[in-house]
Design a protein around this nucleic acid. Sequence first.
DNA 1: CCGCTACGTTGCGCATGGCGCAACGGGCGT
DNA 2: ACGCCCGTTGCGCCATGCGCAACGTAGCGG
Lengths: 273, 273
Amino acid sequence: MSQSVHRALQILAQLGQGPATLDDLAQALGVHKSTVLRLVRTLEEDRFVRRDHRHRLSLGSRLFELGRSSLESHGIRDVAQPHLEALAHVTGGQAVHLAVLEGARPVYVAKVESTSSVRMYSRLGLTASLHATAVGKVLASDLPEHRLAPLLDATDFEAYTPRTITGAAAYRDELERVRRQGWARDAAEHEPFINCVGAPVRDAAGRVVAAVSVSVPDVILDLDRVLALVPSVLAATAAIGADWAGHDAGHAGPPEPPAAQVAPHHPVERTSR
Amino acid sequence: MSQSVHRALQILAQLGQGPATLDDLAQALGVHKSTVLRLVRTLEEDRFVRRDHRHRLSLGSRLFELGRSSLESHGIRDVAQPHLEALAHVTGGQAVHLAVLEGARPVYVAKVESTSSVRMYSRLGLTASLHATAVGKVLASDLPEHRLAPLLDATDFEAYTPRTITGAAAYRDELERVRRQGWARDAAEHEPFINCVGAPVRDAAGRVVAAVSVSVPDVILDLDRVLALVPSVLAATAAIGADWAGHDAGHAGPPEPPAAQVAPHHPVERTSR
DNA sequence: CCGCTACGTTGCGCATGGCGCAACGGGCGT
DNA sequence: ACGCCCGTTGCGCCATGCGCAACGTAGCGG
């Protein structure tokens, strides 16, 4: 929508893959150098980018602060963490994830690392696939049609493995199954040799607010044994939901009223032009 | 410089202090609701903000990714960490910080927590004071006049304690002393009962690229004993500088050529208006 | 059960803020 | 000492982003 803001964000994204020079950025965005300069200056004023001693641009410390806030703003994260650890324990040290829906994709907001030497790749704050993961199915399964339809349109149904569900129709069937049974599986649909089971965390009103999954390489447990973990997962999500309902009620109303504080600098915003 | 970008960044900063509604933001920025809406939509497209199930706005996962990159982009961080830990050890478990200059203020990019029960407050990614900290003095002492002057103008010389240096003239004298002796002190100038000593990390060309400091509450060690730590700090910074020169040379040239890869979406940028 | 309020959303018309261009300047390496 | 690479500046045009005011809707209290 807003051209210059979008470009500024592209600059940040680009700098996320390493420092760059002005012309690098200009070329990457396909705009003129001077345009980048103006955007960068604005970003610099607010500490979103910095320049090291010899004019190279990189991400600023403000992004670190905000990145931290970003994770912390998911209140459910702290509530869930102990339950995730307990779940990892009872399932024999498997990898456990908590994800929430953000826009069109699930995002991992908490995790417990597997204790086995075979590690699944995932990272806090990264997005997962909607159609090829247990958490994706769980989160999608609760969406009303008017939210689901645009998401499916935006999904490419990439076939990560031969078992990946491709096509919206088949996926809708899968979601119906998830809804009925109350949990989801991912039978080597994303990584060839990893099976997962996932279940929804519901708030007091019954809305799905997050999803928990357990991921197991099949050299550790075969699919049947993974499916046998479902009751443990359901117990964990129920416990998280209960805790969350409590915290949620306690926090009712804004935790900190965002107070009308404008930045004290720039006393006159538009002097001349 | 760029109005809409600046406003978008203000929105992110505001959301950093907690979720907010559209009108909250409009009021905080002093602009119309619809203006905020357009900016927020743009931020949303790129996952810089998200909306939870009922329309509250918070920071998006993209910020978490970038926040991580932001710290990692300081290559010196990884190089320095083991040396910082060694320094903390030989000084008896004191708090050790590594800071770099970003714009007008030092930023902590690595630290070792004190082992004593008296903890100094600091946080990775946060900025420190330029005039009232050892790292600030160290970083400022190496700046050429044309960089230093504007910084001093932008500094308010707030008197945190009775011993804080207030006024640019006195501060310039202090910088001269730092330059001559090769290290800086902070004798209860920022926190009433904490003394620090800091020293510069220099690259192969002799430029100051970072500063290391040791902070000690005076219930643990008196000022003289803190000053006695200077040789250890100097040894640490020398070691870091040497390691960094090696890494720096090894990395010569861009670590990853930022490659002209534009986002594959938005095939036509401007269709209509 | 209904009206009120609070919030997000839309369309419009104006002028401003941001754009590309082209030329300048300075530092570094050769 | 020269040339190249980058960052920086001033300018004029017009698309872009702005505030306004009206609409739609969902949640709430009477």
